[in-house]
């Protein structure tokens, strides 16, 4: 899984590598352009944007890079006047109902998306809309609330929940029909560290259990290595990079140029490596601990 792409290949991929049509491929976006009613033109070009079944992908980019535009095209909220958007082989702007039925979405501000009068009603909202019978709806809600550990909240009123609880409810509402794709816009925004970790665990669980592909945007770069495998980097309406997250994070200079920063551990160990220390760049704290203990052991051996 961690097979890294060659850097040269990443850089040269622009406009070059044709997409192989694949039955596992669930999203394909090719240089799209949209014009808003006030004549502002927004495009997302550069590399093709492709997502396969069960993948865990983050879209990184500074504010205003075009992340939301891209997501809105995938959801069929925007209609491209140029380029191609295919989700599950369909054009979302034309077949929005079929497409969104298979996508769960958690927006950045959960208050805007929790609609039901009670938590139960909110989770049941989507299956009810798609005409599931009462016992079926109950079964679906029961299943997802058990898996996310929020059954004790079912009778609660949404506006009395904490931020972390609201996020989980939104997640349950998005996942209740077990869609193939889950889109999360800044899922960690405004959450305390513990809630962030809980959400990460839930997302992993969802990905494992249902094989749901995760597609998220996030600025919480330090939390990402634990939950995503691959990253797309967008800047000023162009998809500039695509690759395994550890490879993308190593390009510190490039990241700085597009107003991004690598995770703090990556930055620290990259600097140590530049100083000539023989370390591997870690992505999580356990790995980092091992590296440091290794270094200490080696230097102690030398000293002795």
């Amino acid at each position: 899984m961690k097979k890294s792409l060659q850097k040269a290949e990443i850089n040269d991929k622009i406009d070059e590598k044709p997409l192989v049509e694949d039955k596992d491929q669930i999203i394909k976006v090719k240089c799209i352009k949209h014009i808003y009613p006030d004549n502002t033109e927004v495009s997302v070009c550069g590399l093709d944007f492709v997502v396969y079944q069960g993948e865990r992908i983050v879209i990184l980019g500074p504010n205003g890079a075009g992340k939301t535009t891209l997501l809105n095209h995938i959801l069929g909220i925007l209609t491209p006047i140029e380029g191609e958007v295919k989700v599950f082989g369909l054009e979302p702007a034309k077949a929005q109902r079929e497409v969104v039925k298979n996508i769960g979405v958690v927006f950045q501000n959960v208050d805007e998306q929790i609609i039901g009068p009670t938590v139960y009603d909110d989770i049941a909202f989507t299956p009810r809309n798609y005409g599931y019978s009462k016992p079926e709806v109950e079964e679906l809600v029961r299943e997802i609330c058990t898996n996310l550990g929020i059954c004790h909240l079912l009778k609660k009123i949404p506006h009395y929940l904490s931020g972390g609880q609201k996020k989980k409810v939104a997640l349950a509402g998005a996942m209740v029909l077990k869609p193939q794709l889950l889109i999360l816009d800044e899922p960690f925004n405004g959450l305390d560290p513990e809630s962030k970790e809980e959400i990460i665990d839930l997302l992993k669980e969802i990905n494992n259990r249902y094989g749901t592909a995760l597609l998220m945007t996030s600025h919480d770069i330090n939390y990402l290595p634990g939950i995503v495998d691959k990253a797309y980097i967008l800047n000023a309406g162009k998809i500039l990079r695509y690759g395994q997250i550890e490879d993308v994070f190593l390009e510190r200079e490039f990241l700085r140029n597009v107003s991004l920063r690598p995770p703090i551990l990556v930055e620290l160990f990259a600097r140590l490596k530049n100083r000539g220390l023989s370390v591997e760049i870690p992505l999580d704290i356990d790995q980092a601990e091992k590296e440091i203990l290794n270094l200490i052991a080696v230097s102690q051996k030398k000293f002795n």
């Binding site: 809105n72 959801l75 909220i77 929005q96 109902r97 969104v100 039925k101 996508i103 979405v105 927006f107 501000n109 805007e112 998306q113 609609i115 039901g116 009068p117 009670t118 009603d121 049941a124 909202f125 989507t126 009810r128 809309n129 798609y130 509402g173």
Partner: peptide, 20 residues
């Protein structure tokens, strides 16, 4: 803006009347 956002949410979640 909120109303516009909710419009998107309702579209994505397939709203056709609330039921309780």
């Amino acid at each position: 803006d909120l109303s516009e956002k909710m419009h998107q949410v309702l579209t994505i979640r397939g709203y056709n009347g609330l039921k309780t």
